[in-house]
Amino acid sequence: MATALLAAMALTAAVPASAAPRSTRLLVIPSKLSDGQACTGPSDQRASALPWAQQSLGLARTWALTQGDGVTVAVVDTGVAQQVPTLHGRVTAVGSAGTDCVGHGTFVAGLIAAGPAKGVKFAGTAPAARIIGVRGTDERGISTEASVAAGLNAAVDAGADVIEVSPALVKRSGTLRTAVARAVAKDALIVAAAVPDVPQRASRTPKPPRDYWPAAEPGVLSVVDFNADGSRPDGALLPRSADLAAPGDGVVGIGPKGTGHFIGSGASLAAAYVAGSAALVRSTHPGLSASAVSETLTATAYPADVPRIDPYAAVTSVRGGELPQDAAPGSGPVELSPDGDGARATERALVFAAGGVGVALLAAWGAVIVPRGRARRWRAAGR
């Protein structure tokens, strides 16, 4: 178990920026469209290199165990284009969500469940999972408390096992709170972006951490993004607290049309990777409840200021439908303080490891030294 944990930690360490694919020429996927802006068209560029996010998550060895079969993930976003080749046949749309003018919802769905394509190393986190496309915005990508709540309710009614929510709202509402509670009661795991996708990097004055919704609601797994260096993007908005971190800056994905690729950034993309990881866990261990899946993902994450998702560790840590013994059921989100909770977690791990060594030494003393002392009737050896 210790060897597997060390291997998992090594694979989930941050990938250097030099390891990121040369994909800067890819078109940027928008999260919303301005008035008069045309719908996002196909990209004529394809990313053939292995994306840094996929490499950092160690997905290749996780796929040898599970690819998300039998799990349905709802995407509450701008819709999911049903005719995209790498998702074709695995997308069910609610209402008009089968078309995606913005393209962001399709991009997120691809990060969760896009299948492999010839000559391309990119694939979704759970490439065998099914997708439910749900509108959580209007056709231009504008979201409100009512639109996100309606999306959550539609996802629950469609039978989603995992629900990814891309919008992060500055206001909380009773309608949204009720929709979250209903999803939790139906054993659907909600994974939400902890901050809006627009990082406002042009601002020279950092904004103080604050809550965004529905990520800050009880029972929701809130996610922030990190880049190829393992840090938050410069100038990014900060939530008051977060449960997990995942790749979300300069990640490669699919568009709403054609076979080309786009590049995108934001916490919603990080939420997509966590939602895909949740699908892998629910596929491997269908007896786990949504809350147990959430606890498994956080308990097995790589220690950092905000723990980084580790899909392989999460999938392999559960035995017989039970949580690992070192999981922390009911643990709250990580407060984003300067102290660094990840460092304290590492210190605690070292203390526990030292304690284990001490126990082993005491056992050895009892097995060897005590019998010899009794044989000499506890007299010194030279007497």
Rank of each mutant, 00 (worst) to 15 (best):
A49V: 12
T137A: 07
A275H: 02
H285Y: 09
A64Q: 14
A364Y: 10
D161N: 15
A19T: 05
G253Q: 14
T125N: 00
G174P: 02
R348L: 15
P286V: 03
D138R: 09
G98L: 11
I132T: 08
T137Y: 08
A313R: 10
V252W: 06
P324E: 09
L65E: 08
I190V: 11
A179T: 08
S277F: 07
D197G: 14
T178A: 15
A7N: 13
G366K: 14
V306W: 04
S241T: 14
G287A: 13
S166H: 03
D229T: 10
I190E: 04
P51E: 09
K121V: 03
A155P: 01
L297Y: 03
D310N: 14
R376D: 04
E145F: 05
L280S: 06
G105Q: 10
A109Y: 06
G320W: 10
S222M: 01
V75F: 09
A17H: 11
V274D: 00
R308A: 10
P329Y: 00
V108D: 03
V281W: 07
T298L: 11
S337P: 05
V306I: 08
V195E: 01
T66E: 02
S48T: 15
N153M: 07
A168K: 10
G321C: 08
T316G: 05
P209W: 07
T296M: 09
L6H: 10
V224K: 00
L336D: 01
L152M: 13
G119E: 15
V75D: 02
R308H: 08
S337H: 09
D44R: 15
P307V: 01
V91L: 11
P324R: 12
F262H: 11
G219N: 05
R130H: 14
T300A: 01
G366Q: 15
I132L: 06
A246Y: 04
A155C: 09
R177D: 04
R240Q: 11
G124E: 12
E139V: 13
V148C: 06
Q45G: 03
P42D: 02
S289H: 06
G110Q: 13
G68S: 08
T296E: 09
T106F: 08
A380P: 06
A7M: 12
R204L: 14
V80G: 01
W63D: 00
G258T: 12
A360S: 07
K118P: 10
A290N: 05
A10N: 13
N227W: 04
G340H: 03
F122Y: 15
P16C: 12
V370G: 02
G248C: 08
D138W: 12
C39N: 08
A160L: 05
